[in-house]
Every structure is written in structure tokens, then in C-alpha cells.
């Protein structure tokens, strides 16, 4: 078998640096996706038709087109319209964050709908304003129920982040390709990258389990 892992040893620090680069934009995307996703979910459950339609169209567009296309539009096509160049980092956060928001909004919407309607009525009967009711009573219960689905979304986002390599962003994937081109061997750097991704997802999964256990205190 033609395998020689010693060849990638000098490149290991270079590839490990990719972890930080990937984590940086993935975590930013998760935060953006979660915030916008929550707002979208709230729009979807209001009685105001305009907000509902806007949120539905948003979701339809971002779920209905490939993420790689959205990424390339932000990085290559938008500068053509605006005349301003955009950093790979910014366009990656935008594409991944906005895309994730569409999925997260559906997860959170389902979570809110699953909270007993009596909770809303109890809060209303006490005179609790809408915003406090959502933040203190409905969302904590909703998020507890949807934690596994949210975790799944974050894991998907982490893995799918590999496609930023197409806009030349130096994440783990891109670095593996560069090393592969450098040493004319692809199996070793790609396998190494795969192990890194798997470890990242493993840590994320464990983290999710801890959070889930923490939130189960009231059961």
C-alpha cells in the first residue's frame, strides 16, 4: 500500500491552524443563525401576516437553494453589484449564518408550537407582557425540547463548513487540499482533515449532552 504519513508531519501545524479558522467562522455563523432564526420563528407565529410572509419567503429561498451557491453569490457576485470587495471571512459568516437561520427558525417554530398553550394563557392571565412571556416562559421550554434538533443543526453546519474552501478561505479543508497539492499525495492530508472534523463533531456532541442534562433539572 502506498501510504506514508511521515510526509505530512511538517504540515501538521499548518493544518491544525485550520481548526481555529474553521471554529471562528462556524461559531460566528451559529450565533448569527440562532439569533436571526429565533426572530424569524417569532415572525412565523405572529398574527401579523406581513411578517409571516416575509419569514416564509426567507426560509423558502435559503432552504431551497444550495448553500454553495449562496456562498458564491456572497463572495463573487455581490461585489460585482456593489463595487466593494468582500472578505472571505465575512461572506462565509453571512452565507452560513443566514442559511442556518432558515433551518433554525423552523426548529424553533416547531419547539414553540409544542409548548402547552396553557403556558401562554397562564402568563397572559398574570398580565405578563408578550416579550417577557416569550423570553422567560415559552422559549426556555421550547429550547429544552428542541435541543437535540438544534445540536444536529450545529453539527451539520460544522461539517458543511468545509465548502468554504471554494472561495479560498483557509479552513481545515482548504489546507488539506493545499498540502495534498504540495506533496502530491491526497490520502494522508484528507484523512487527517477527516479525523479533525470528526473530533470537532465529537466534542460538540458531548457538549450537547452536557447542556441537555443541565436543562433536564426540572424533570
Amino acid at each position: 500500500m502506498n501510504l506514508d504519513f511521515s510526509q505530512i508531519v511538517p504540515y501538521i501545524p499548518f493544518m491544525l491552524e485550520g481548526i481555529w479558522v474553521t471554529l471562528k467562522f462556524v461559531s460566528a455563523s451559529i450565533v448569527i443563525g440562532f439569533i436571526i432564526g429565533t426572530l424569524l420563528a417569532l415572525c412565523k407565529i405572529t398574527k401579523i401576516p406581513v411578517l409571516k410572509v416575509i419569514a416564509d419567503i426567507y426560509t423558502s429561498i435559503f432552504r431551497g437553494t444550495p448553500l454553495i451557491l449562496q456562498l458564491m453569490i456572497f463572495y463573487f457576485a455581490v461585489p460585482q453589484l456593489t463595487g466593494y470587495d468582500i472578505e472571505p471571512f465575512s461572506s462565509a459568516i453571512l452565507a452560513f449564518g443566514l442559511n442556518s437561520a432558515a433551518y433554525v427558525s423552523e426548529i424553533i417554530r416547531a419547539g414553540i408550537m409544542a409548548v402547552d398553550k396553557g403556558q401562554t394563557e397562564a402568563a397572559q392571565a398574570l398580565g405578563v407582557p408578550y416579550k417577557s412571556m416569550m423570553v422567560n416562559i415559552i422559549l426556555p421550554q421550547a429550547i429544552k425540547n428542541i435541543l437535540p434538533a438544534l445540536m444536529n443543526e450545529f453539527i451539520t453546519l460544522t461539517k458543511e463548513s468545509a465548502i468554504v474552501s471554494v472561495i479560498g478561505y483557509l479552513d481545515i479543508m482548504r489546507r488539506a487540499q493545499i498540502v495534498g497539492a504540495d506533496i502530491y499525495r491526497n490520502f494522508e492530508p484528507l484523512l487527517f482533515a477527516g479525523v479533525i472534523y470528526w473530533l470537532m463533531v465529537f466534542v460538540l456532541t458531548q457538549l450537547g449532552k452536557v447542556v441537555e442534562r443541565r436543562m433536564r433539572y426540572s424533570d
Binding site: G118, E121, A122, A125
Partner: peptide, 13 residues
């Protein structure tokens, strides 16, 4: 006006 429900509707968390 206070209200008490058949199914309590306490905040579980």
C-alpha cells in the same frame, strides 16, 4: 384578576 386553571399551568422550569 387572578385566574386558576383546571390543569394548573405552572411554569415547569
Amino acid at each position: 384578576i387572578g385566574m386558576v386553571f383546571q390543569h394548573f399551568h405552572l411554569f415547569p422550569h
